[in-house]
Amino acid sequence: MHESVLVYRRFRYLKWAVTLTVVSLLAYIFHSPAEPANGGTWLGYTLGTIGVGLIVWLAWFGIRKRSYANPEIKLEDWLSAHVYLGLSLIFVATLHTGFQFGWNVHTLAYVLMMLVIVSGAFGLYAYVRYPKLMTENRRGVSLDAMIVEMAEIDRETRELGAKLTDEIRDLVFDAVENTRIGGSVRRQLESGRSGRTVAAIARIREIIPLPSREQTEDGRRLISLLTRKNELVLRARNDVMYKAMMDIWLYVHVPLTFALLASLIAHVIAVFFYW
């Protein structure tokens, strides 16, 4: 009943994209212009027009996505087409260039377009890969719930730490104070356990047994709490990372799209007025 973007309507848009690609390739192969292949032949113009049309239409997705009340839109339909037709643009635009590249505004538009496509391809990869990992990582517990549990463990470990030696107290406080979940972009994209907590656990294990049996028991309990905390840290950081991976590419994809549109306008104007 659930149907992913890739298989949507039995690969309808994959079929469209393959058709477009194959037709473009065949046309390119059988086309033999007087001059070397370039954007100025009739095929070059045709492919260029298709390419511009596709780019504008693909960028229009941003508007479509926000047209919530429009009854004609099923966003999955649009995304499926966006993905496949966007990928076919690699062929259409490359053939349009006739492999003539240089240090100019025309090649800039091409490079920007390829970067948009590559970032989009990464987005697709992220959308296919991370949802499942995220679900498995969460095991039915939300990030908020994990943070609540961590805070509870923090409180308990501080209390236990304060009851034991000064060194242990400082270790625990240090580990609690310096363990972060999320934060800067870099932090969001990294995962792993808390190094300070790992160190604290190792050090406490060295120190015990403590003088009294009761203290030793508390120490052991502290170790198990810190270990539990660190597993939660790992899971929470993973969660943040997966979410960041699914979000970050859009911060590249969208601005580059605007840059592409601007350079595309420059390219088209330049071609028509100054060639």
Partner: peptide, 25 residues
Amino acid sequence: DLAAGPACVRACPTGAAIRVNPEQF
């Protein structure tokens, strides 16, 4: 009041959200 059906389902870009009659499901 929207002829095309629930906005949440239509706005899902990846097809993850569906509304179903449990019996059919």
